[in-house]
């Protein structure tokens, strides 16, 4: 499964549902500049867990929170390995 494509899709879907304007998703985009708020990210994480079968946040107690969109994707890609 293409993790990047799935994450991009969820960002777009949640932005649409929550009526948010999504910024262009580049790897160096700070997540908080993406147009999504905390609640949107929370929903994205739940939806990704349903699709990818993993929530990398819950598997590691020493979480370094992802800061950019690229970090976010890497975070999920590493968890899938």
């Amino acid at each position: 499964m293409d993790i990047r494509a799935e994450i991009t899709e969820q960002f777009k879907q949640v932005a649409l549902e929550q009526d948010k304007t999504l910024a262009t998703l580049t790897d160096d985009l700070p997540l908080l500049d993406s147009g999504l708020d905390s609640l949107c990210f929370a929903v994205v994480v739940v939806r990704l867990e349903n699709v990818l079968g993993a929530d990398p946040f819950s598997t590691d107690e020493d979480v370094r929170f992802p800061v950019t969109f690229g970090d976010f994707i890497k975070f999920y890609e590493q968890a899938a390995q």
Partner: peptide, 12 residues
């Protein structure tokens, strides 16, 4: 409730 790493919990 469903536990959530960003908001503590969400409803499902």
């Amino acid at each position: 409730a469903k536990k959530n790493p960003i908001t503590g919990a969400l409803v499902i």
